[in-house]
Design a protein around this nucleic acid. Structure first.
Lengths: 200, 200
DNA sequence: CGGCTAGCTTAACAGTGTTAACTCGAAGCA
DNA sequence: TGCTTCGAGTTAACACTGTTAAGCTAGCCG
């Protein structure tokens, strides 16, 4: 009956994810929400994991679009570009907690491994950071030893901030915006070229 | 019959958590492992959440002991102390993924909120970091604006590294130890005093 | 009309957290 | 000793979960 039940399932799932969270989401609940029986979902997705993988795909695409948009704003200033990418990444995580959770926080234990073939899609997002880091390194404005490692380190810092905020583990007396800005600045300051190693 | 069934439940739960992971852990499975009926667990713990809260308590204590041990090694060098605390924190997370998960990665959605009264216990661990950060700030060897924020920022970076590693999201071509060391150094370098703001 | 198929359904299996009601033995006490 | 109380542990049940097997049915093709 429905022309694109798959599309309807995905939208409803995302919607329920926002409303009730990942923990309480069930196939039967999704089915109830769309007015079909639970088994209909299995006609469009192999299982619950496959459904979440599809959501990861969409989330990665959305993030990529968001990051690409800010990337173009600073084509010639790697530091400003990196700063903007960081802000956008954290903002995306906080604006789309349901996406962020399925994209980056579900463990291999919780979910069948995200197919390796699809990892490339996920890596595109990291590549935008890597390009800015490498450009800054090449231009000498950022102290970068290994661009690949440095990129992961920055990502790691952003990921830590997002996840702590989403899990509400950050001291409530700290202003959220101030914390985010401090985390990003702190991470970028880790790239400041030093005359000699101060930290041994 | 059993002199301390509560103790047995906790140990078995931790054991199962290590072996099979959080996702596949059930009250009935725990009960089967200890040779009691599932409902016996409810005589010692209000519900599954309470059982996990007890595990959080133990994890926080273990972490505190680990951090206190390294804290005493560098009583007069805030930077070295902070560095050692960071290493130990990450090591703890990777050595005790099951504890780390229930301690810092379960969402309020997944679990009844960890009681506010017990948060103090959790905060003790952060306080060890805060003391080192504040000491470094007072001594002028670390550039610290707001010690509370700075402490959370460092913690956030460590948390990001631990969670990405546990979720196996870090590029497999990057050596784990190198990544950890880079993340910690990067975070500490964010405290290097600067003559003027390079990052606007 | 008969047969096929796509799309959806119901029924079922084995599992989950949790509650209510029960058993049963030990302890306390008259 | 006999009776009661109590507490630790039990079974049975409820309302869920993801998933599979089998069945139904409307529409299309020959």
């Amino acid at each position: 009956m429905e022309p694109d039940l798959r599309r309807l399932i995905l939208d409803t799932t995302r919607h329920l994810l926002v409303e009730d969270g990942y923990a309480s989401l069930s196939m039967r609940k999704i089915a109830r929400a769309i007015g079909y029986s639970a088994t209909s979902i299995y006609l469009h997705f192999e299982n619950k994991d496959a459904l979440f993988h599809a959501l990861i795909d969409e989330g990665m695409d959305r993030l990529h679009q968001a990051l690409k948009a800010v990337e173009k704003v600073h084509p010639d200033d790697p530091i400003a570009r990196l700063h903007a990418l960081c802000r956008r990444y954290v903002a995306f995580g906080l604006e789309n907690p349901e996406y962020y959770e399925v994209m980056f926080m579900l463990h291999p234990q919780h979910m069948e491994r995200y197919p390796a073939e699809k990892y490339r899609r996920a890596r595109r997002n990291l590549d935008l950071f890597a390009a800015a880091v490498a450009a800054g390194g090449a231009r000498g404005v950022l102290a970068v030893e290994d661009a690949r490692v440095a990129t992961s380190v920055v990502w790691s810092a952003l990921h830590g901030a997002v996840t702590l905020l989403l899990a509400r583990r950050v001291d409530v007396r700290i202003d959220e915006a101030a914390f985010i800005e401090a985390a990003i600045r702190h991470s970028l300051r880790g790239f400041v070229p030093l005359p000699e190693p101060v930290i041994s």
